[in-house]
Structure formats: structure tokens, C-alpha cells
């Protein structure tokens, strides 16, 4: 099951003798990513595990929005981020999201109207970064 796959993947990450189990669980997760994202075992994964999953080219998702939603869902249960967020009394998502996880989001892969409609309101990118993004979409 999805839960078992996440648990095996996490538990065997640093076990040299369990490479095959780890690879099998990882591939199962990539193939069933949409189900994995919905499961409670997903939000319990470590930062390194989540970054590894979300950074893959061959993850089975419909669009970059699925990756973004998964990132947000995982982030909201990230205790470290919660502590940073409350200690600095900031709601700045950019400061709270772990860099390795943020780096998994491929902003140029969003449709511009999707970015403006769904993603922009999270205020993750700076003005300069957005300008750069628009220049990519404009094909310059």
C-alpha cells in the first residue's frame, strides 16, 4: 500500500543492505504519487525524502500544481518550519519552506494563468524572480 511504501522508503533510506527494498518503495511512490500525496504517511516523511521524491522528472503527476500542493501539504505539518514561523512571527512562506523542498518546485512549468491564479498569492517569489519568470514565459 501507499502507507507501507512511504514507511519502507523512509526506514530503509540509510540501510545499506536494504537497497532493493528502498528502490522498490521509491519507484512505487513515484508511480502512485497522486495517492501518496493524499496519505498521512506522506506528511511524515523527512525533508530529504520529500525533496528526493518531488525533485524527480519521472514522478507521476498531472501538472506542477500537484507538486506544489503536495509541497504545501507537507510543509504545513513540518514542525521545524512551524517553529521558525511562530518564533519570527512571520507568515512569510518563503522563509519557512525548506530550501531543498522549495527547489523541487519548477515555477517555469506552471501555465502563466495558473501561476497568477493559484500560486502567486502565496508570495513565495520576489519581484525580480517573478519578472524573470515572466520573461521565460514570454520566450525571451
Amino acid at each position: 500500500s501507499v502507507r507501507t511504501a512511504c514507511e519502507i522508503y523512509e526506514a530503509t533510506r540509510y540501510v545499506t543492505g536494504a537497497k532493493e527494498f528502498n528502490t522498490a518503495a521509491f519507484e512505487f511512490i513515484l508511480r502512485n504519487a497522486m495517492k501518496v500525496f493524499q496519505d498521512n504517511s506522506f506528511v511524515k516523511l523527512s525533508t530529504a525524502a520529500v525533496a528526493e521524491i518531488l525533485s524527480r522528472d519521472d514522478i507521476s503527476v498531472h501538472s506542477e500544481v500537484d507538486i506544489f500542493d503536495a509541497m504545501l501539504r507537507w510543509h504545513h505539518t513540518d514542525e521545524d518550519a512551524y517553529l521558525i514561523g511562530t518564533s519570527t512571527k512571520t507568515r512569510n512562506l518563503r522563509k519557512c519552506i525548506k530550501e531543498s523542498v522549495l527547489n523541487c518546485i519548477r515555477f517555469p512549468n506552471f501555465e502563466p494563468f495558473v501561476y497568477c491564479g493559484l500560486i502567486q498569492r502565496w508570495r513565495i517569489l520576489s519581484k525580480d524572480e517573478e519578472d524573470y519568470l515572466y520573461s521565460i514565459w514570454a520566450g525571451t
Binding site: I59, E64, N103, P108, N109, I136
Partner: peptide
Amino acid sequence: LKSRPFLKNSPRTYI
């Protein structure tokens, strides 16, 4: 800016 990985136009195969 170009050094920021999340701004790279990277291939991902969507299903």
C-alpha cells in the same frame, strides 16, 4: 537569478 533551481525550465513528464 538563474542560479536558483526553482526558476530553471526543467523537464517533467506530466501524465
